[in-house]
């Protein structure tokens, strides 16, 4: 399915929000994934050779050169457009952080914004600069991005598993429940990352899991644990052990 989005370029131009040196403009986010709702914004990424010279209604620090990503907002009809301005150089610097060589050497930590950019390059829909977007998408898919992210999240999951075990042994059952729950979330996110669903944040976790449909965690099983359906207040340890066992089973299937 490919929708003509060239009108978005014209709108940006009309609003004086399109830099002269743009090389790629793409929409990403929930609307592109088909997950939108009445309150969804249009998330646009504008990539240019030179940094955006507008004032920017938001400034997002990034560990890159230049060290900031600017954001603008606009209303087009009833829709709010949330626009992020990256330079081609910034995009290429982020891609350089996720090569297999970088992974083998101990990859630099990616920030939330960098993870989001790489995820959105994967699922973005071009309004202009389709060829460049496709090139970047292939680069992301062939990179170690999934492995880097899955490894990082699995490490966090392991920490929560250890917390849950320790807390349970110490009789701090309520804390153990929370740690087990966090371990489950991290483990599911690692599984999703290994399957190419690398977007940060939990609000789309259920959608992403449906999209991936992993054999190791059928959706119904996921949802029962996510909603803590089998937690018996008289025996929370049983739920904790069930969750930790599921986490362990998933971890063994997350290929990195």
């Amino acid at each position: 399915m490919s929708e003509d989005r060239t009108h978005q370029l014209e709108e940006l131009r009309a609003l004086d929000l399109l830099p002269e040196s743009w090389v790629c403009v793409f929409e990403a986010g929930s609307l592109v994934r088909g997950w939108g709702n009445a309150s969804s914004d249009v998330d646009l990424y504008v990539i240019s050779e030179e940094p955006w010279t507008g004032e920017g209604v938001s400034h997002h620090p990034v560990p890159l050169v230049p060290a900031v990503v600017l954001g603008e907002e606009a209303f087009v009809g009833a829709m709010r457009w949330d626009i992020r301005y990256w330079t081609r150089g910034q995009v290429e610097q982020v891609l350089a952080k996720v090569t297999w060589q970088a992974f083998e050497q101990g990859a630099e930590e990616l920030t939330l914004r960098e993870v989001q950019l790489l995820d959105r390059l994967t699922f973005g829909a071009a309004a202009g600069g389709q060829e460049l977007l496709s090139h970047w998408r292939v680069q992301v898919e062939e990179s170690a991005f999934r492995s880097i992210l899955a490894t990082r999240i699995l490490n966090m999951a392991d920490s929560r598993v250890e917390d849950a075990v320790g807390q349970l042994e110490a009789g701090d059952v309520d804390s153990a429940v929370l740690s087990a729950r966090a371990a489950f979330h991290y483990t599911v996110d690692a599984l999703l990352a290994s399957e190419g669903e690398c977007g940060p944040g939990e609000k789309w976790r259920a959608r992403r899991l449906r999209a991936v449909a992993p054999d190791v965690l059928p959706y119904d099983k996921y949802w029962a644990l996510e909603t803590m359906r089998s937690l018996d207040p008289a025996d929370p340890a049983a739920w904790i052990n069930e969750v930790l066992s599921v986490c362990r089973g998933i971890t063994m299937e997350v290929d990195i």
Binding site: L154, D158, E162, V165, T251, M252, E253, V254, D255, I256
Partner: peptide
């Protein structure tokens, strides 16, 4: 039973 503090990874198909 597996010791709970043991870390396991599947790396390119190998546990």
């Amino acid at each position: 039973s597996v010791r709970p503090d043991i870390r396991v990874r599947k790396i390119r198909g190998t546990l």
